[in-house]
Design a binder for these strands. Sequence first.
DNA 1: CTGAAAGCGCTTACAG
DNA 2: CTGAAAGCGCTTACAG
Lengths: 345, 345
Amino acid sequence: MADVAQRAGVSVSTVSRTLRGLPTVSDTTRARVEAAARELSFAITRSASSLVTGRTGRVAVLLPHLESWFLSAALSGMAPALREAGFDLLVYSVADVRERADFFDRLPARRNADALLVVSFALTPAERARLDDLGMPLVFVSQHAQGRPSVYVDDADGALRGTRHLINLGHRRIALLQTSDETGFAWSSKNRLAGYLRALDDAGLERDDELIMSVRGWKGSGMGAAVGRLLSLQDPPTALFAETDDFAFRLLAALREANIPVPGRVSVMGFDDHVMAGVLGLTTLAQPAAEIGRTAVRLARSVIDDADGAHRRHIVLPTELVPRGSTAPPPSPGPARPLRDAKLT
Amino acid sequence: MADVAQRAGVSVSTVSRTLRGLPTVSDTTRARVEAAARELSFAITRSASSLVTGRTGRVAVLLPHLESWFLSAALSGMAPALREAGFDLLVYSVADVRERADFFDRLPARRNADALLVVSFALTPAERARLDDLGMPLVFVSQHAQGRPSVYVDDADGALRGTRHLINLGHRRIALLQTSDETGFAWSSKNRLAGYLRALDDAGLERDDELIMSVRGWKGSGMGAAVGRLLSLQDPPTALFAETDDFAFRLLAALREANIPVPGRVSVMGFDDHVMAGVLGLTTLAQPAAEIGRTAVRLARSVIDDADGAHRRHIVLPTELVPRGSTAPPPSPGPARPLRDAKLT
DNA sequence: CTGAAAGCGCTTACAG
DNA sequence: CTGAAAGCGCTTACAG
């Protein structure tokens, strides 16, 4: 910056003012400074400005990994929103226990970013406390957090409506397949289960623990076994509701391998509206991942700008049922039992 | 840090030395400082250290978007490697022309990161020059760049072997479907075309421009039309080689919609080995995306540590043919013409 | 093994 | 509208 000042024949103060776009610079000076900056390909050293302003110009995102559709899509929504607001994007993808311990131990985000967005990250109470102690703006994404601004989808409502759709098609035995991976989407998971159960209750259908299946890891392999166990029940399900589309895809593959026609013998439903859901004709509940990301950035900005905790808002975005070819009435309808509450959503 | 020093009853110099793990600190002092740091939940202000060391402790990644499998997977490979090396990850996802202009105009990575990884980003000569002027370590990922360390896969060889696989199955009319989106994978695209053509030449098969189809955008929709055009040729292809798996998936969907059996009537092959390729039984060429990411980080570290340009290495990783159910011999084999070079790879 | 002091490149009152 | 000076929180020779 000193170079620019010298070349433009002004002080560094003036260069600083010009480059930050302050109005208190005369037009001629501004022009000279800008020219000099351009000629020297000047780029500001943010560390220096950070040091004095206390702002880093960075927003950090903490997430369990980068490989699920939802996380990528949410991040894709954040990136342009952050850029527009002049923030850089710092990504902390914290997968295993060691990385996790390291993150919470070193708290690299502490003075390294102006806000931290926590995405689909099931925190232990200790971890949560540690973050709260950070004294920096926190936004929770795809999960509800007490006393902190959060953006998420109404998972319970989505699962409720998805299950209802299956009930409306005539299904009475509906299995729910959840991931047993606790690190990531625990919050959504719990709520989707609640919505599912509520739909059953509303319809006067019996809850059956055997129909609620926990399959290991979101990229694990136990899917074939799970399908086997479900379909060998005395009264097997005619519909399978997978907690996420990623999961539903693997389910579809397992069913195809087992030569079980979809939706001929079983209907399959997912949750997310992954790009591939359209390609594969999977009925699912769309959640607006990119918009969630954008909204999270908006919240972060308002918390950054207004240090008063006035922004402890919780924004709940809607899901939308997208019916496609993977759901249909069950094979042999049987005499329909009366339903208490089965309006088409 | 002054607080810590006071609490530990030492100078800030000593705190600094302790926290950086320098050996020139006595054990008792070290213990006192560490205790004080812990009690105060001290986290270092990186801006300050950056300012004096000139190191930011950050590595920036420039990529065209975040939504392709390859980019997510590569990033997933980078994240732990960077963390292990003590670097934070700064992501510049630069999609449209405006963001792009902005990035190259402001060069936010300039003094904001210790290295820049350019991933699958088709640069204009001016952009490339701008980056070279940056005077910071640059690593090119999934593309070859003259005079700069690069990691990529041998795309030409992969396409060659993929095409050969189809030829070996008896296909003589093999279409190549490429994306016409120039912003992203232009480099790989060009080389895959070259490999495809070489396989045809090697086998003594005629090149036919009608079989090389450019479909708009990697998430566009013109797939149905492209399929229509191909299958209405006088001598239609019996195999379709899609430039990426993402593309192949859409192709499969279009074919299913058109009721064209795969591989019964046409074989389909992709490139990437996307997670879903296994699920859908797509034959493809696997590229080690995560390893590419890790290797890129390794290169970046060696360039950062050793400012001499001694590390202009180009690391070429292999692809691997993964045969699955989507490729098979063509429907009516006809009398096999003799092949010059058709060993099974 | 430890401390005092200079300085990294900015921003920000404070004068003028 | 512009400049001189202090200071942000560290690291790093330099002494001791």
